[in-house]
């Protein structure tokens, strides 16, 4: 039960600080914040809530409703997990970087940029990480034409 009480306490702390109530499922929290408060939430979660383990960062393409950048932070001691989400537009996907808070966010944001085209402002080295430098488009977006023949190999 300690994890559940810790999760409830963390939820009320987030509600107090950011004015949005996280949805709680067991010991897993999920909260959507505006893009401007993205690094602030990460820093708050790390320092105050004890979510010091940066699990992953990725994005979801919701077509007309834009892209959703999400990151999961874990408090391994209390067993609490926080999924932080933010919405960006598909036309100008810009989001502040988390590299100042978690160094491990570096490559994950590069991958997110590689696959979804989300530009992370303030990232020290934002370039493609998995695909070639000359790659056109962002393949994990829903509107990416997968089977389009592209010179020279397909």
């Amino acid at each position: 039960m300690t994890a559940l009480t810790a999760a409830a306490a963390a939820a009320s702390q987030i509600q107090e600080r950011f004015g949005v109530g996280p949805s709680v499922t067991g010991a897993e929290l999920s909260v959507t914040v505006p893009t401007e408060r993205w690094p602030e939430l990460a820093r708050f979660a790390r320092d105050t809530l004890g979510c010091s383990y940066f699990n992953f960062l990725t994005a979801v393409d919701w077509k007309e409703q834009g892209l959703e950048v999400l990151a999961r932070l874990d408090n391994l001691d209390a067993g609490v997990a926080l999924t932080m989400r933010t919405r960006v537009t598909a036309e100008h996907p810009r989001c502040p970087t988390l590299t100042g808070v978690f160094r491990g966010a570096d490559w994950m944001e590069r991958e997110c940029y590689d696959m979804f085209g989300v530009v992370f402002d303030g990232h020290p080295d934002l370039r493609r990480i998995l695909l070639g430098d000359d790659w056109e488009g962002y393949p994990l977006r829903k509107d990416y034409a997968v089977d389009t023949p592209q010179a020279p190999y397909r």
Binding site: P139, V146, R154
Partner: peptide, 8 residues
């Protein structure tokens, strides 16, 4: 085959 990165 229908992956974005695979030579067919």
């Amino acid at each position: 085959r229908h992956g974005y990165h695979v030579v067919k």
